[in-house]
Amino acid sequence: MANTSYFAGLIGGIKSLCTGLGVTFRELWTPKITERYPENRKENHIPERFRGTLVMPHNENNEHKCIGCGICQMQCPNGTIKVETKMVETADGKKKKQLVRYVYDHGCCMYCMLCTRACPQGAIEFSPEYEGAVFARESLFKVLNQPGSKCVEKPARPAAAKPAAATEGAKPAVAQPQTADADAAKAKAEKMAAAAKKAAENAAAARAAANEAKAAAEANAADTALQEAWKEAEAKALKLETAAKNFAQKAAEAAADVK
């Protein structure tokens, strides 16, 4: 303000100061914006999309939707989720993965939504529960599946499909029996049939590879690396064959549903 004169500067300055004083004087009487937490807990509305903590919703029968596939664990950028599973044999003699403990480290979570977006079952979601402070770091490790809970059998998928479900999912959605919508069931059956066919092809390819590896390993019994490769290929082939069988069965079930 070098180009203004002494007195003009003085008067202009005083005027600007008075304007400022006017603003603060007016604000003295405006309503205050302080949030009176925790008294306002009841009326304090947290938007439903707010990500406070990861939860696994359970229904009234203490059942959750998690099948223990571990995709969320793979997606998590910093190892917040540990899915502990075991293999159990179902009544009809099939081997099936079952969730034992779903451990969530709240202290580590970045709330990036990769897990919830990837979950093919819609088993986990974020809740706007925001009072997450605890006294010990250990308390931040939470087991999300309730004690004694189990995976819901033949779960009916909620009608509102998750937006862009399984964008980053590593596998196509696992078979889900549909509601009594004939068209949908038919489409499903077709899809299942295609999936079963694909699985069978994969299994066949894996079997072929395993056979090759076996031949190579037998020819070169001394080479441990080849032995290892054979074992691996064998295991893979077995796994894929089981999967193909499952798919075939499910496809048959789906076809039966159509009828």
Binding site: M1, S16, G20
Partner: peptide, 15 residues
């Protein structure tokens, strides 16, 4: 409007 009257025009800030 409030920012301008309390701060932008203020002679101390301008200087």
């Amino acid at each position: 409007k409030e920012y301008h009257s309390i701060f932008t025009g203020n002679v101390i800030f301008r200087n």
